[in-house]
Structures are given as C-alpha cells and as structure tokens.
C-alpha cells in the first residue's frame, strides 16, 4: 500500500493532469466539506451545489494557491463562504448569485477549520464526554441532527427550553476547548 501523499503534492500533481491526485483530494476532504455545508444550514441539494462549486473554484486555482499544503483549510473556508452566499441569495431576484459572483478566492484559510482534522475531532468528542448532563446527551443529539421536539422528549424537558439549553451547552463546550487550547 503506497504512503498517502502530502496535500501540497496532491495539488501539484492534480495541476499537472494527475486525476488520481484529484480523487485523493476528494476522498480526504469531501466528507468534511459536506459536513461544513450541512452545518451551515444548507439543504442537501444546496449543500451538494456548494460542495461542487468549491471544487470548481479549486480547479481554477490549482496553479495559484498561495500555500498548497493548506488546501484542506482553503476548501473548508471556500465551502463555508459558498454556503453563506447561498443563504443570503434567498430574497435576490437575479439568477446570478451576487455573492458567488463577487466572492474572491481565499488566500488565507481559516485556522479554526483545524477542528475538522481527525485530531481536532477526537479532542472535541473527548470534551463532549467530559460534559455534565444534560449537556453531554444534548450535544450528542445535536450531532445527529435531531429536531428540538424529539430532543425535548429524549431529555424530558419542555420544547421551549431546548434552544436556550443547547446554546448554553455549546458555549460550555467552546469554553472547555478554548481552555484546553490555552493549556497546550
């Protein structure tokens, strides 16, 4: 089994016509891009468009990425921006997506996207396990996209309390992660 190639190597190879390098990029980053698009609030069909659009952007920037080693962060930032543009266009009568039209390529990927790396995800899940109830269960239910009504039934709380509790639990988790990052 050959060693997996470094991201910068994959970008250079794809730019030079190596389709297998492109497929490897998709295998590595596609699932994360989908998760970002869906977490941004897009429907499955809009998320599919946003992900496809982000790959089209990469295709046009294969030769011009400032730091090909950070292609993962570049893709996450791009799909997040595409998702925001999709969400903003809802009241726009033009068939063109204005924000997509004017969206410039990202030179510096968002460093916060590192939470999507395997290590970041492991740390996040470890912190979820360290939360007290009801936050631990609630965050697990948020992760599987359960609606507020079903969450209320599972947690034995009024539906109206789910939103504020969710916000408090996410804030606690954020604080835990921040203190962990500060301690490192």
């Amino acid at each position: 089994m050959p060693e997996p190639r470094e991201p910068a190597e994959l970008v250079t190879a794809a730019a030079d016509g190596d389709r297998t390098a492109w497929d490897e990029l998709e295998t590595r980053y596609g699932p994360r891009m989908w998760a970002v698009a869906r977490a941004s609030g897009l429907s499955p069909s809009d998320a599919a468009d946003a992900v496809q659009g982000s790959w089209l952007r990469l295709l046009q920037h294969l030769h011009t990425l400032r730091d090909p080693a950070k292609v993962g962060g570049w893709l996450m930032t791009t799909v997040r921006r595409e998702a925001h543009a999709f969400l903003r266009k809802r009241h726009d009568v033009s068939p063109f997506d204005h924000d997509v039209l004017t969206l410039e390529a990202v030179d510096d990927p968002d460093p916060a996207s590192a939470v999507l790396e395997a290590d970041g995800r492991r740390l996040l899940w470890k912190q979820v396990s360290a939360l007290h109830e009801p936050c631990r269960t609630l965050i697990q239910l948020v992760a599987i996209d359960l609606g507020n009504r079903q969450m209320a039934a599972r947690l034995g709380m009024p539906v109206g309390s789910v939103g504020p509790t969710k916000a408090r639990c996410l804030e606690k988790l954020r604080t835990l992660i921040s203190s962990q990052e500060t301690a490192q």
Binding site: W34, A35, A39, L124, I139, A143
Partner: peptide
C-alpha cells in the same frame, strides 16, 4: 471556532449524514 466548523466536527464525529 466558527459555529459551522464546530457543528460540522460534531456531525463528522457522530458519523451522521455522511456525504
């Protein structure tokens, strides 16, 4: 961490809604 990345990481970790 932006909310989207945060929720995306949770979704990925849960293995729900795969691509």
């Amino acid at each position: 961490i932006n909310d989207e990345y945060f929720l995306a990481a949770l979704r990925l970790a849960a293995g729900n809604d795969p691509i």
